[in-house]
Computed example of a mutant assay.
Amino acid sequence: MKKYLFIQDHLYGGGAEQICIDTAVALKEKGHDVTVLLLDSNNIRTAYPEDLNLIKFDIAPAFMQGSIKKNKLKSVPLEQQAELTQIINDLAPDTVIAGHSHAFWLAPILTGNVWFWVHGDSLGLVRKQNLGFFKYLEALKKFMQCKKACNYLFKGKQLIVVNQDIKNLIQQHIQEATVKVIHNGIDVKRLKSNLPDDESIMIKKWDAIFVGRLSEEKQPDVAIKAFAESGLTGRMAIVGDGPLLDELIHLAETLGLTKRVDFLGWQDQPNRFIQQSHCLVLPSRTEGSPLIVAESLILNVPVVAFNCCEGVEHQLSSGELAQGLVALNDMQALSQRLYQVVTHPYVIREQDIQRLNISEMVKAIEEL
């Protein structure tokens, strides 16, 4: 038995939060002593079991603001830093896993077998392309600031990343970091806990479904446009909330889809909506190792996705699943593939599903 401590930013309801809880629960079920410490216990939307040891530490609010280039530790009183250190010392964990963004600024005060869990572009090391001159200079300045902060935090440290692209990026820009790729896995029991045992009684309501934050990097507008151009005559579901909601509603109106696109808002259990869909579409320009792709496949719902990172490519690399991969930002190919997969879905085999199970991931965590 080992002692694990997960230091988690928050449980606002995203994929990084879900995989933290799923991993903690899976380790606990294998007999390990597991604690999750929340830096912000407000607005909890990710469910967790009552018997999971959860500490609501609630660090100084300023620590939870801004990007990685900001020295967040300066906003935490020395007394609270000492309190956190004492809690960790009392727990005496064999392994500490800190994520998924703000917690990185605890690096200067964390000691022992500490791993920082990077789920996506939270390090600010991905540079946008095709910018005008002044925007290029602004982006370059931000990149250099993030790179400096990352080297301060992670030089000589240990990082878990969820795809090979992130590992390559870190090795290119951060000195002497140890980086291990562990693709996200799915807690199948949690995923199916609220679903009927007999899938045959499930009525398909939507041809396509988008699930995720309605923000620029997820490109939900691309999902709606691809659906509009696909030739499909059914309905589409949009599950999620975010800053682009009003723009997306207007886009649906402009495309004449008001009566065919259902905006369902944020849902704590999107699995039941996925299961009622013929296909999930993921048009993101960047991802880590998105849970929603693996969850859809496990629910026997095909996925069509931009090949935006090694994480997505890994998830769709088995058997016929590769039919769901589309070149990044190729709108025409996305709409055509969406029609193809909805009308003639590819086969999702048991071995395709098994490789996405959290059990494989937990084995890798135990080896840290």
Rank of each mutant, 00 (worst) to 15 (best):
T95P: 07
E50Y: 05
G99H: 08
G13E: 07
Q18M: 11
N42I: 02
Y48D: 04
A62T: 01
N43M: 07
H100Q: 14
Y48K: 02
A62V: 10
E79W: 00
N71P: 12
I55T: 02
L91S: 01
I97Y: 04
I21F: 08
A24G: 09
I88Y: 08
M64H: 07
N42Y: 01
I19H: 01
A16W: 06
G14D: 09
H32T: 05
G13K: 02
G14N: 10
A60M: 06
I21W: 07
G31A: 04
G99D: 06
V96W: 00
E50P: 08
A82S: 12
L54P: 02
P49Y: 05
I55F: 01
Q65F: 11
S75W: 10
N71M: 09
E29Y: 00
V34E: 11
I59N: 13
T46M: 08
S75E: 14
I88S: 06
D94N: 14
N42Q: 13
N71G: 03
E79M: 03
G13M: 07
D90L: 14
D40Y: 06
E83L: 15
L52Y: 04
A60C: 14
A24P: 13
L78S: 11
A62N: 11
G66I: 12
Y48A: 05
P77K: 11
N43Q: 09
T95F: 07
K69N: 10
Q80D: 15
K56S: 08
I88R: 02
I88W: 04
A92S: 15
F63N: 03
E79I: 13
K70F: 12
G99M: 04
S67T: 01
N89I: 10
L27M: 05
A92K: 14
A47I: 00
P61L: 03
A16L: 08
Q80H: 08
M64N: 14
